[in-house]
Design a protein around this nucleic acid. Structure first.
Length: 182
DNA sequence: ACAAGGATCCTCT
DNA sequence: GAGGATCCTTGTT
């Protein structure tokens, strides 16, 4: 596995971090995933949970870069994010899709035999993500490691998903990134 | 203390 | 392609 990504890696615009994370590895013992889809959420972005200010839930988004932000979606899914930008600036990257690198047996158990991890709820389930991870630095329960993108892969960019509540200009922003075979 | 709604997924048809 | 599951967070009484 490549080196652990440092806080510095995350201390920039989420819109830059999101595509950079494609091909990187996500590890929560004993499962390792390769990231193939991400979305960026930024300060002053009406799609971002933190756009109305700090609350107990969104506090980690304002915290140091490289920390983990996990929240419950639709009462069922634990969605995994990585905090970006300098401390005090609320931004993060949602992990929307991945492939299994290691821990396949456990992923099958957690996912009812399925291995496809396209969709943020599936990623959280495969990792065994818990709400207690939120606010913790990467490198403890969850770690993010450098990876690589194959010459046969390319990055597709498009609008984000599931943010109908956001302002029209934010809904349009092309901050969803996918790694696809070219 | 209460009600509403959500950065989704699965199982049907 | 439609609908239900399921529970925490939030803003309001």
């Amino acid at each position: 596995m490549g080196p652990l990504l440092s806080p510095r890696f995350f201390a920039r615009s989420a819109a830059d971090v999101a595509p950079s994370l494609l091909g990187c590895l996500l590890h929560a013992e004993p499962v390792t995933l390769r990231i193939v889809e991400t979305e960026a959420y930024r300060q002053n972005d009406t799609a971002c949970h933190a756009h109305r200010g700090r609350t107990p839930r969104t506090e980690p988004l304002f915290g140091p870069p490289g920390h983990v932000y996990v929240y419950l979606c639709y009462g069922i899914h634990r969605l995994v994010n990585l905090v970006c930008e300098a401390e005090g600036v609320a931004a993060g990257v949602l992990i929307r899709g991945a492939t299994v690198v290691a821990g396949e047996a456990l992923v099958r158990t957690r996912r009812g035999g399925r291995l496809d991890l396209i969709g943020p709820g599936k990623v959280g389930q495969a990792l065994g993500a818990e709400l207690g991870w939120t606010g913790r630095p990467s490198g403890t329960l969850l770690s993010v490691h450098a990876g690589s993108v194959a010459p046969t892969e390319c990055i597709r960019r498009g609008p984000r998903v599931g943010i109908d509540y956001a302002a029209p200009e934010d809904r349009m922003r092309p901050w969803r990134f996918q790694l696809v075979p070219s």
